[in-house]
Design a protein around this nucleic acid. Sequence first.
DNA 1: TTGTACGCGTTATCAT
DNA 2: ATGATAACGCGTACAA
Lengths: 343, 343
Amino acid sequence: MSKASITIKDIAKALKLSHSTISRALKDSYQIGEETKKRVKAYAKAHNYHPNLMAQGLKNQKTRSIGVILSSVSKVFFAEVITGIESVASAKDYHVIITQSMENFEKEKNNLDQLTWRSIDGLLVSISAQTTNFSQFKSIQESGTPIVFFDRITNELETHTVIADNHQGAFDLTKHLIDQGFKRIAHITSSEEIFTTKARLTGYTDALKLAGIPFDQHLIRYCEQGGVDTKEVEKQLSTLLELDNPPDAIFAASDLISLSSFDYLQQKGIKIPDQLAFAGFSNFSAPQLFNPGLTTVKQPAFEMGKQAMELLLELVESKRPVTSFKQVSIPTELQVRKSTSRN
Amino acid sequence: MSKASITIKDIAKALKLSHSTISRALKDSYQIGEETKKRVKAYAKAHNYHPNLMAQGLKNQKTRSIGVILSSVSKVFFAEVITGIESVASAKDYHVIITQSMENFEKEKNNLDQLTWRSIDGLLVSISAQTTNFSQFKSIQESGTPIVFFDRITNELETHTVIADNHQGAFDLTKHLIDQGFKRIAHITSSEEIFTTKARLTGYTDALKLAGIPFDQHLIRYCEQGGVDTKEVEKQLSTLLELDNPPDAIFAASDLISLSSFDYLQQKGIKIPDQLAFAGFSNFSAPQLFNPGLTTVKQPAFEMGKQAMELLLELVESKRPVTSFKQVSIPTELQVRKSTSRN
DNA sequence: TTGTACGCGTTATCAT
DNA sequence: ATGATAACGCGTACAA
């Protein structure tokens, strides 16, 4: 158990100074002589001194830890977001506690409780598909812990937000389908409530409008659980396929939904894109290897994580209360492949 | 900044007891009367008391945090491992600090330094493809911080290890290929040094031996960087394809290598499985959607993370030094799909 | 059965 | 320019 780590007191003894002098010298206090500073710093470096984070935290009421709530690390999108977050965190000596809500409101609440009593300095959240009540987030914010929302955001709280440009991504993809000659484009998406759903839906409708294609409510299918349950997606899909006037193209709104849908269509023996075109929002690592290659809208995951973390640390480290907030929106990237090509 | 969190002192004042009595009552000390215990606990619960982790840590020289080093969270395998780790951690009130080595020895060293001076209670490691020097791990272990290795392990340190049964997985896959009638099976794998490489290679050779197929050194190709660099994989592949007597099947040893290889073969217009069969170790979320569906050996990622964390916490929480160590090996799962079917 | 006093490593407020 | 001392919240040896 004996960590060989050295403390300020050790340095004080060795250099025959008081521990407060050491502390000040290490923080470059103006009250300490240059001579002493040098001696202290040299000794500290030589003996690989690092401040004890718990002692610092106890004193300053800061933990230098940031909580993150997202739906699941197994989604490539979030894995990349985490990498973005970490890149900022490690540079600024914060550490990151990641929790997964699995799209479940209760789990999200538990994570929130856990993180709260661990007394994190700040919180980064992509809200779950089930969440409609934000009182807990609000009370955390009011108690002084800054929150930044990313990906799945809300306007129930005033704070920084970071999203992919969902509207533009959905617009681009829909327009691409229209340009390919598809006319009945179905949109299978997540819970109606959440932010991304709305943004993507308007991107979709705007593209239709621009092309003069009438909007058909029957072509919009919601998955309340965001597609965690495969059955849910399959049900919506089969509803679509059984329409009197079925779609000729499908636009899936997320990784999970894309996956389940694509799988289901394959199983049903439906030929893509000949019988039905298919595309979706997705950050799969290898959509080109699918059968056929999958047209995707890719979200700038790393960049989103990075920027969200930067904004959060701004709030955390700000001396005075921040009152003006940024709504960052980062462009998506349309990658066209075989699954949407009209022969 | 004012967290509304309540402390032991607050409870003491409210109940007109000393703070040490409160502390003891909350830990069910035998020296405290049942009556008092009840009152204290009731009050604590009612006011949502939680011990301040930093104060506890400072006192006990424990952080209740566990460091993790792995190559990249963007690999589905590791994402699932993390979920397994977290499932144990959150149940036991530990938190997990995840760092990524990106298969780079220097980064691994930095992560190790970072984690060390954060004074973690234990360390979970899948070593990078480049690592050949274990002195830093050794000194951490000697200084009293327990380490458990998983996935990429080493026998340079004495400790618990958790792996997938790489030998069996490689054996099963190779045998499957042989049963399908393939005779020249190439194996494209990671750095020659690392543990998993060796285990998979012997699984491969054992299957060949059993079938009476001669071993051909030319069919074994190593990627020193573990496939982070696509070019590296492509080079090894093209070497294989240009052999006088080229392979009729390829067995890739990892996610990354599978991906790069499969992609390259597609680009070259090589028909799988007709011209060349293909299979690999991989935890892709949807190998069935590939073109063609990919035969894979899947590693029990969640289970590995879970067991590794459980073993680590055993060490961390053990009162007396542990001297006997477990080498856990968890079965892999062969999933046969089109990419290895002989017509 | 309960209270007092001290220490964990650091920082801040005094004083010198 | 430097030192002594208190405080952050908790746990525990020692007293009572």
